[in-house]
Amino acid sequence: MPSLRLENVSKRFGGLTAVGDVSLTVPEGTITGLIGPNGAGKSTVVNLITGMLKLTEGRIVLGDEDIGEIGPEEVVRKGIARTFQNIRLLPEATVLENVLIGFHRHETASILAGLLNLPSVWREGKALRKQAEALLERFRMSDYADLPAGGLAYGHQRRVEMMRAVASGPDVLLLDEPVAGMNDVEADELGVIFKDLAASGMGLLLIEHNVRFVTKLCPVVHVLNTGRMIASGPAEEVMRDPAVITAYLGKGQA
């Protein structure tokens, strides 16, 4: 699977630099961490990669293809999926329907076939349903398939969002604070799934607040503060970096 590279990426809103000169790589088959205090620009990085925001400077490369200039619909077709920091499910739809829409980019039946309900559509629908059920099984959510997603507990909603992203069959998965608000047990359960996904060759970019969780999963961690990359490297090393400690705990604590 191709890996994702950010090369000197910058984003300015007017005079405000939200992200300045950030470079990082998300190699295949690994979980790469991106941490930083609130307002450091982590979510902006995700929005830049997924094409929801336009780059001011720099390049975003997937494999050897420049994907910096294309919009979100194209980005997902290139093989990048994301979750949202503040969960965004389709609230009226059931869990299963939420996952099914994740398969959208793999649907091959033509629109005309869809309008006429031709056999190709129901064959495909059946196949997708099977895949979606397998995914539910993997995330241990099968029991909830027919429940409206909007009414689920918080942790379960997070899972639904992740299933939806995984359903799109990405090469690179961007997780925007996936364990926020979860206890350690729930977080570790998800950690196992993330490791699983990485083992299958997928590259994961894990954006987190939970330093313990990141150090446990990520061989390489990048630290962002006020839009700048202040440290990169193996997790233990980075966490001992005085600049990082200052950024997280404030001056005088280092």
Binding site: R88, H104, A109, G114
Partner: peptide, 27 residues
């Protein structure tokens, strides 16, 4: 009825409920 059973209906429903999410899933 056919729309409701097909990917077209799923895409429509996704667009109605959250356009940004739909776009991020390739709709």
């Amino acid at each position: 009825w056919a729309i409701g059973r097909s990917g077209v209906g799923r895409a429509f429903d996704a667009l109605r409920q959250d356009e940004t999410v739909a776009a991020c899933l390739g709709v």
